[in-house]
Design a protein around this nucleic acid. Sequence first.
DNA 1: ATTTAGCACTCAGGAATAACGAGTGCTAAG
DNA 2: CTTAGCACTCGTTATTCCTGAGTGCTAAAT
Lengths: 345, 345
Amino acid sequence: MESAIPLDTRKERILKAVVSDYTATGVPVGSHALAVHLASWSAATIRNELATLVDVGYLLQPHTSAGRVPSDLGYRYYVDFLMDDVALPGAARRQLAPLLALMPQDLEGVLETAAQVLAAAVDALSIVTGPRTGGAAIKHLDLVSLDPAHALLVMVLEGNVVRQHTLVLSRESDQDELSRLAGRLNAELRGLDATQVARFAGDDPREPLLAEIVAAIAAFLRTFSARQDTLIVHDGVRNLLHQPEFEDVQRLEQVLEVVEEDRLLGELLAAAFDPARPVTVVIGTETRISQLRSCSLVLTTYRVGESRGGTVGVLGPTRMRYEQVAPRVRFVADRVGSAISRVMS
Amino acid sequence: MESAIPLDTRKERILKAVVSDYTATGVPVGSHALAVHLASWSAATIRNELATLVDVGYLLQPHTSAGRVPSDLGYRYYVDFLMDDVALPGAARRQLAPLLALMPQDLEGVLETAAQVLAAAVDALSIVTGPRTGGAAIKHLDLVSLDPAHALLVMVLEGNVVRQHTLVLSRESDQDELSRLAGRLNAELRGLDATQVARFAGDDPREPLLAEIVAAIAAFLRTFSARQDTLIVHDGVRNLLHQPEFEDVQRLEQVLEVVEEDRLLGELLAAAFDPARPVTVVIGTETRISQLRSCSLVLTTYRVGESRGGTVGVLGPTRMRYEQVAPRVRFVADRVGSAISRVMS
DNA sequence: ATTTAGCACTCAGGAATAACGAGTGCTAAG
DNA sequence: CTTAGCACTCGTTATTCCTGAGTGCTAAAT
């Protein structure tokens, strides 16, 4: 991408017109259509330019007597140098904002709502990941007696995620004792994460019940934070179905192989994301995943307070309205960031 | 389904053979193939029987010179009277059990794992819902201070379902005060449901904060108990793609319109499920949803302890191996039930 | 009375062919 | 260097024809 072959102004205008026409219609665009569109040069002149654009690899010709189509490299040039980054138009903002305003109060809910709204807004598949946590910390906990031998451990974690876990008690206990223990644990464990809780464990051998509960909390936090990092939701598979590039079902199946496998998807996002740019665009084969060779990703991250949160992105065919998708992804990411900040505060 | 037209043994054997052949191959089955398969009657005899089976509506003929295909009614007859309910074969059990053995320790994780495993096992789309919460009576509650103006209300409901809700406080407060209020509310509200909590509200005008919280609890309980099972996960969209009935992308798009809309999906499951049977099979138009007219559902519920939990189901084309899908759905449902019992107790 | 062989008929699907037209590359004139 | 003109290419679509699996019906066999 660094070694992009530079183009003169006319070639740039033509390339831009090809991209814009093709993303709009999905049909290879010919010299005549461009001549009308640009209204500056004749079809013949444009044909000459098109030929050289094919030579340098920015355009492709599906077959000898067809129009031209941008190559991955062509899209790359467009995204890097030609695309006007327009701000999100007011109309779109007015459409999105209310949907994102009434976010649920829990993490999963925020991610799912965001994914839904974004998928609908860009008519493609959306992907939203949870904030990368540096280990889930305990914010508050409570113990509820179920019967003398069992207690329910309720934990409020960083992010206002509430989780419960049933404890089998090694000796009988009642609500009064549990409440007392809960009070003590609240004082001791507040703000600690899995490893810190584990270190704290087994301090006081005279209180085996307490040690037992602490151990359970530590174990729970460990598995929880492992899962939290992989929290990843997607939505809008149906939107891909009416794109002509997925008329062939095989293509879509390959894409879903990646998307429905959360692990793969997570690796992809991690590998693809370039923190240097506000919005990262990964085009076609740049994904380095053969199943996605005809897809592009538009990615960004949201921030939770000071620190980096998770990823918000869109996956669609390479023939995508990048200049429209990018600001929408940014907008949703911002709202996700502030919604999660609110939830996690 | 009650008014099913009864068939003599020969017609039954033929219908069964048609279903079995067709579900296996996906190709309309002709009299000759059946003659070889059954080896009891000639093709001509079978042709006569096929004609009457078409007349009574159990079979369809795609066009005059094609073989026969089961109609929704035909599948219904097959499922109700002809299907051998084989237990899950040992091989399949050995394949599924280990995947379901190492379940995550949280509710969402269990549902997602189950959906993944089931989708792969039946090569179709799987749907799993969270446990339906019975009475929405309060068992225990807690208040966590987020900042002076906001508090997190954590409620343990009947059935040990834990829910949280963020409160905006009309005046500033801190954790000490909130803990005191929580203690008081615990004593007062234990065992009360939405209407009882509402009746209790506004008792003490000298404690506006308390009244406010009680009102919030009442409101929450109301919407909570009204709300259907909100937690719905599905997996295996990719499995539908290689079914020939979804070669036409339009079909799939219609199905996903329903499946990706959790609300619709929840209503569908609620409406379709017949608690009288261990496994409910809903075939084609029986779903009463036009988008699913060429799909079938195989549903069952799992139990959490004593009470009914949520639904586990499979959605696939009507041409489905019902006799294989049903035991797999049951098996997964059982494991989900015990996994959730372990998580929630 | 039921079952079966035989046979003419139907009709979707595939292969072969033809016409179409959008778009090209090249050439020669402006 | 640009542009009009023109012969040519080749994918797409429509048309036709053929094939064969499968049928319904009839008449003979059981």
